[in-house]
Design a protein around this nucleic acid. Structure first.
Lengths: 234, 234
DNA sequence: CAGTGGTCTAGACCACACA
DNA sequence: GTGTGGTCTAGACCACTGC
């Protein structure tokens, strides 16, 4: 682990351990530099990382302050880790409805930046939270990147398999959201009624080298889904 | 303007001007260092800024590549600039329904981190896109930060007034979203029907010094609203 | 193993907050 | 004005990619 990542996670632990609240001040830069026996730039890099994660904010001429999310049980839209971390207090499970190798449709090929004669894995799941439906998920994985999937992997966490099992690194993602009304079929999977509200979220995930490997379309149960974003200003 | 910001915007212009596509390679670091006659760290800082904005991605050992959003007319959830920039091709307008000074409710006081005896400005607007309703907006501004608002300011862009008129700097934001069904009243403002889908988005905006100044609750018309997020990996 | 991006350092100097 | 965070530099060294 890199030095600045190590420092960042130690500061994160420090905040957690001392149960610091929004607006509380962290030690000044000079102190941190001595504490961690490192250079100014490295500390700043560590702090930038924490700022990006929404854990602190820095005010020039004043100090470094803690920032805290105030609501529980919301799903972080900026996390690459799915819901796992945000909903860790709940019992999450998946029911695999389909798992097969296919040729992509035109839309899928376009989203994954591949040709239509390349293979993709198609996975259809319903995800549950505490025995209630959370969302319906249809995913397409580029088989050139993810050469093998089975029911066991797909029932557990696919991303965990990709990172730990295949040794690949997830980089960035494009996400598109819209609101609409459930179709008959979607409603039956989610145990809701035709015409009730839905949130559709399409995501394209890329490896750090820029290869798109996953195009997923999630349809959320409006009763179970709440989201948050910690914006850092652009 | 700082050197690294200047460089970032020049590179951004360069990408735009050459109409570079997703995956196209930018000049290598060494070239950029000479081109802009600066140090390596400064170039890297500029590139980090562009990466945060979702315009490029960097691959160690390989190069710097362009990243492009592929869908038009979606609203960027990570921008502090509201819809203005994403929907610039459309005619946007606001109808002001209410504008008054109030005492906050408990919920509002909590979200703005103020006491219940402090004044807030309450603004209720319907926002239109091409004569269709886009969203219903209820905002509360901390009067200690924004001491004066009038109908003219509120009909135009409030954030523009806060930044340009008052010389304040918007820092970061907390956003919370959920899906539900429109109430009778919301439906009538949005010219939709009771029970139809809605997206509710609550945002708390902070100045760079960490002072919360705006708590807003937006109810979106499900027909008009599409959102995107360019995730950069956390 | 050459090419390329990333980390880390030490230090000078700058800009903003707050009293 | 003092304290505090931010920018910028020059350069050594490290780590990954891909031929």
């Amino acid at each position: 682990m890199l030095k600045y990542q190590q420092i960042a996670s130690e500061i994160e632990l420090y905040i957690e351990k001392h149960q610091m609240q929004q607006g509380e001040k962290l030690p000044v830069l000079e102190t941190l530099i001595k504490e961690f026996n490192t250079s100014k730039s490295t500390i700043i890099k560590a702090l930038d990382l924490l700022e990006k994660k929404g854990l602190i904010f820095q005010v020039r001429g004043s100090g470094i302050f803690v920032r805290r999310k105030k609501r529980k049980n919301y799903i972080n839209l900026l996390s690459n880790q799915g819901f796992q971390k945000d909903l860790e207090k709940f019992h999450l499970s998946s029911e695999v409805l389909e798992l097969e190798i296919r040729k992509p449709t035109e839309a899928v090929a376009q989203n994954l930046h591949i040709d239509m004669d390349q293979d993709v894995y198609y996975v259809k799941r319903v995800r549950y939270i505490e025995e209630e439906t959370l969302c319906l998920e249809e995913s397409y994985y580029n088989k050139a990147v993810v050469p093998y999937l089975n029911k066991e992997i797909v029932t557990d966490s696919i991303f965990k398999y990709i990172e730990d099992g295949l040794g690949l690194k997830v980089g960035f993602s494009d996400m598109y959201m819209q609101i609409g009304k459930l179709t008959d079929q979607e409603a039956s999977y989610l145990k809701l009624k035709n015409g009730e509200p839905k949130l559709t979220m399409e995501s394209i995930f890329y490896l750090t080298n820029g290869t798109a490997f996953d195009y997923s379309k999630l349809t959320y149960n409006y009763n179970q889904s709440q989201f948050y974003i910690l914006g850092t200003g652009i």
